[in-house]
Design a protein around this nucleic acid. Structure first.
Lengths: 252, 252
DNA sequence: CGTTTAATTGATCACTATCAACCGTCGTGG
DNA sequence: CCACGACGGTTGATAGTGATCAATTAAACG
């Protein structure tokens, strides 16, 4: 009997691997699609890929073929310029889409590395663009996701260009808290998946500064931190910090 | 006779205003389209809009309806966060597309302001998305442009996160030089359309720093600057500067 | 366990912000 | 026509933030 069922789905991945059953589908690419559309999207996502901690999802220069939707786990993207300067440009978690930067040149422009054992869905971009013709809602949602990536980066530009170290770290923690909360996890207690060094690179600060700031935040009672475990005690205070610099510069 | 020709194009703007005759069309949205496709794109671009110096092309919070392709002139985008911190997030010139940030939320996320008397083509986004179904090449090129905006911002993140003041300004000037050169203008002599303050805001530096750096560059013989007129004497030197920081951090 | 990698803490230094004074240009109105 | 103010830009003196250098501790891993 189970043999029959398998015969009816010759090419498909197991049921549990389908978008409709994925706990992330309300945040991810298939958001808002109806059942029929969901199946068509599922039809082009042939492969689920496991990526072990510290392994590359893709490397700079790799030919661009797929976007990747994170099912489980965390990634960082590391951008390297012509001369070798490295910077972490983002941390991604389940439900987020990776690889937008590669579309323009048909080559990946950065490295994507798993921060823990993870799993992604490979979305062939050519086939996705074809699907857009038949599913306008999918096209629109894709454009929204790409646009969101642009505004995300703009707010990091603001952070890097205008904020002091303390505000940058506060903004970073508030951002993590928000994203975990959107995923149904606690906004107040979570685990950092990245090292202090990676946080520093992302925020344009040194590892020493990150370390000092965390201990200062702890002394102030705003949070508890024990190696990678974070417990935020005063989220409103952190949020205030982020907007404080602006208030100052306005009052002058 | 000319009357007949006009009668055959009831709804259309003057011939000189069409994509096919626009000197920017090899950089802009219509890149790579054939004649028929070009006309269809033209068909949805109903309006050319003049924007005078210091006027807003759009404001934060404005409802999103159009993307804007710059025909003539220069713009800046200014991003303001919840608390009022302002930062210039980009300078745009002829042939470039504006408004990507608004797609995700149906509202513009930043202000776009003309740096001089300018002219743009209004591209209704709904109609553009419809066109994508019939013109895959247009869809692909649009995705490339959006992706390019993402990588552009990533390189600014690198600049703001990793580079010293001197390198930031050098990178900025080299970037302008490249873009003017792509548009058929001199790579060595051009006019700054923005103030020192706007440059500073963009690069995460103060106006005083920009001023000091420009005089230092001048003293070193790398360039001449007379108010807004820039003449670059040693472009290779400026390019070297940009990559210098990387070399240092690698050699340690 | 021994070795490597990550994180903490302290002392010092340098870059760039900040504060302040001044100059030049432009536009406006007395 | 000149006076005035507004604005953009330059230059100098000083100070503060966060980088750098260095030493030590803690955690991770084979």
């Amino acid at each position: 009997m189970s043999g029959q069922i398998i015969a009816l789905q010759p090419n498909l991945h197991a049921l549990r691997d389908r978008c409709a059953n994925c706990s992330m589908h309300e945040l991810c690419l298939p958001m808002g699609l109806d059942n029929d559309e969901l199946q068509r999207l599922d039809g082009i996502i042939k492969k689920r890929r496991r990526v072990l901690k510290n392994d590359y999802l893709y490397r700079m220069g790799d030919k661009f073929q797929n976007l990747y939707a994170i099912r489980v786990g965390h990634f960082k993207t590391v951008y390297t310029d012509a001369a070798g300067t490295e910077q972490v440009t983002g941390f991604q978690m389940a439900g987020e889409l990776l690889g937008f930067d590669a579309i323009s040149s048909d080559q990946h422009q950065c490295n994507s590395i798993a921060l823990e054992d993870s799993e992604v869905c490979e979305v062939p971009f050519d086939r996705l663009e074809e699907l857009f013709r038949d599913i306008p809602g999918l096209q629109r949602h894709f454009h929204r996701m790409m646009s969101q990536e642009i505004t995300r980066e703009q707010s990091i530009m603001l952070l890097l260009g205008n904020m002091r170290a303390e505000q940058r770290l506060a903004a970073f923690l508030v951002n993590l808290s928000t994203r975990y909360s959107q995923r149904g996890y606690s906004a107040h207690a979570f685990q950092l998946r990245m090292t202090r060094e990676e946080i520093g690179s992302y925020l344009g600060l040194t590892i020493e500064s990150i370390s000092r700031l965390l201990t200062r935040f702890k002394k102030n009672g705003w949070l508890n931190v024990e190696s990678k475990e974070i417990q935020i005690n005063d989220l409103p205070k952190l949020k205030t910090l982020v907007t404080a610099s602006a208030a100052e510069s306005l009052s002058r």
